[in-house]
Design a protein around this nucleic acid. Structure first.
Length: 463
DNA sequence: CTGGGGACGGGGCCC
DNA sequence: CGGGCCCCGTCCCCA
């Protein structure tokens, strides 16, 4: 028995069970599967080019792309959602239109869907990745990330003890590049993508995710990009080996400080890439391609609204300045260090809020009884660099009253207490003492010194 | 174990 | 466009 691929591109196969013939090659099931998928994909691509059985029109900036809905369904989370909505109308042609990426970019995406060949270069990779993010094509995103990583000649970065980004001196650059995909004009991802194209279990899981988190895409309307699994994917990638402390703390989007995962090229952290390349949000922002600015949302009165899309996640913002601010959460940039405790912040207002709360006891609330106090009635208590207020009642109840000086020999008392703090701090223990408001200004950490620094500067000074 | 509060990060938007 | 305010979500700590 001889099996011949109809496309004529595959080599003939002779069954080993055929007594009359010895097998030409010893094919494994994996070979067979790959060949079958390759042949099937080629067939579908031929059908697409001949517009045979195409049941889906994709309109991109006025240009129509004909495709098969089942292929789109299997390749893109966005189309999966879109086509799921119209699943009952199986006999009617389905249309979708986009203005958020160019026809050229979509052609690259569509070629990838039908061939597994992704034509990436340095000038289109961001736009392709952005489009892939919109279309929820994680394979494409992963390979774009890999491409960028290799293109920028990046290496791994590691979290330092301060949980901030720094260059790792521990491993040679060469070693760290072993798992990097070298840049090329053609990024061949055919087998992996094809294999995943019809991976039902994964598809089910993905769809389950989309049901839970994504807004429903609508065919002819331009909506904000659906919540991609990219974010979850990136988060998962980021924290595959991230410090547990960092993972536990922080807000819902802990995107700033993370470790680059290099064991697998599919687990490449673009955010780490960007950070490692010492690109501040300003630089990143200045170099963003035009695709970042998108018209994809309609106001309530149906007028189009311009929004700016982050190239690294699905987030869109109204103002470019907000995008610039948002980019800091991807770059890990924390330009506002607290002079009192060395904690760093992405925004000046966060630093100010932190400083006033933690180091200046600006809250006129007794920390113990929560009652409102005044500058006079609320005495400032200090624990290390931390300060807070206690009302007179709570001070007496807590026994801190013994530490209050009568003003005549207060200097000695305070000096003694301060010395006591230092001694106890050396034993990793803290002791409280009471200060007047005037003491705040004298305390080394009392005045907020706003000093915008770069991470690299801070690291250098730290070393 | 659980609920409340504090600290912090991030988005929207006004000035 | 930057600064700042407000709001909300998340995490951690503590009673």
């Amino acid at each position: 028995m001889e099996m011949v691929c109809e496309s004529g591109t595959c080599r003939p196969y002779r069954s080993a069970g055929d007594a009359g013939h010895l097998p030409v090659h010893k094919w494994t099931s994996a070979d067979m599967s790959a060949i079958h998928q390759s042949c099937l994909l080629k067939q579908l691509d031929q059908q697409r080019q001949q517009e045979l059985f195409c049941d889906c029109n994709v309109l991109v900036e006025g240009q129509i792309f004909r495709a098969h809905r089942n292929v789109l369904y299997g390749s893109s989370g966005y189309f999966r959602m879109l086509l799921s909505q119209g699943a009952k109308d199986t006999l009617e042609s389905v249309s979708a239109s986009f203005d958020v990426f160019s026809p050229e970019i979509f052609a690259i995406i569509l070629d990838f869907i039908y061939s597994g060949q992704l034509e990436l270069n340095s000038s289109n990779v961001i736009e392709v990745m952005s489009a892939a993010s919109y279309l929820q094509m994680n394979d494409v995103i992963s390979y774009c990330k890999a491409f960028i990583k290799s293109f920028l000649e990046i290496s791994t970065k590691e979290d330092d003890e301060n949980r901030y980004l720094c260059l790792s001196d521990s491993s040679p650059l060469q070693d760290r590049r072993e798992n990097v995909i070298e840049p090329s004009n053609m990024c061949d991802v055919s087998m992996s993508s094809q294999t995943r194209l019809w991976d039902q279990s994964e598809e089910d899981q993905t769809q389950e995710d989309f049901r839970g988190t994504s807004p429903q895409p609508s065919g002819l309307q331009q909506n904000s990009p659906p919540q991609s699994s990219l974010e979850a994917q990136m988060e998962e990638e980021q924290y595959g080996s991230v410090l547990p402390e960092r993972r536990r703390r922080g807000s819902r989007k802990r995107t700033a400080t993370s470790r680059l995962v290099t064991e697998d090229t599919s687990l490449i952290d673009l955010q780490g890439v960007v950070s490692h390349c010492s690109q501040k949000a300003d630089d990143l922002y200045a170099n963003l391609p035009s695709i970042v600015g998108v018209v994809g949302v309609f106001n309530k009165d149906s007028t189009p609204s311009m929004r700016y899309k982050c190239p690294f996640c699905t987030h869109t913002v109204k103002r470019k300045a907000d995008l610039k601010r948002h980019l800091r959460c991807h770059t890990g940039e924390r330009p506002y260090p607290c002079q009192a405790c060395s904690k760093r912040f992405t925004r000046l207002e966060h630093l100010r809020s932190h400083f006033e709360t933690i180091h200046q006891a600006r809250k006129l609330v007794c920390r113990k009884c929560k009652r409102h106090v005044t500058e006079v009635t609320g005495r400032v208590v200090s624990e290390g660099t931390r300060k807070y207020r206690l009302c007179d009642v709570c001070i007496q109840e807590s026994g801190y009253s013994e530490l209050i000086t009568d003003g005549t020999d207060g200097t000695e008392e305070k000096e003694g207490l301060l010395l006591g703090v230092e001694e106890d701090m050396s034993e990793n223990r803290q002791i409280a003492w009471v200060m007047d408001d005037d003491d705040l200004a004298e305390d080394s950490g009392a005045d907020l010194i706003i000093q915008e620094v770069e991470d690299s500067d801070e690291e250098a000074s730290g070393k």
